[in-house]
Amino acid sequence: MNASQSEQIQNTEEGYPDFAKLTEMREELGDHFLLVMQHFQSGMLARPQKIRQAFQNNNPEQLALEGHSFKSLCRQLGLSQMETLSVTLESMGRSGQLDGAAPLIERLLAYGLQAHCELQKYCLACGKPSSVQ
């Protein structure tokens, strides 16, 4: 991770989804919205765990794949902070240099939990309970 990437991560606020994007998705998905959101909510918890698992297994290639996959989800929801972390971890995995990855992964886990909660609150505000705990 270079100084610029580190500074970018340090200086941004915690990630919240882009609620305008969520509203657009709700309009375009109709009755399917809450089902799709369940997938996103569970992904916000499970995907950072997979990244941590790849790191703990000292598997840079898997770390890069998981980072790449999670990056797309974060982009789709406008989770810019989490996207930045995912891109950085993908890059670190690709280079095989995992020094400094641990705190980024822990931050990604924390933001993922926060994003999960924000998505759940949004779904509840839509008028129907979310089944994802």
């Binding site: 399917h32 919205f33 799709v36 997938h39 996959s69 989800l73 789709q76």
Partner: peptide, 11 residues
């Protein structure tokens, strides 16, 4: 990615 599949399929 099952989540992207779910999104596209739902739309």
């Amino acid at each position: 990615d099952e989540i992207m599949r779910a999104l596209l399929s739902g739309m």
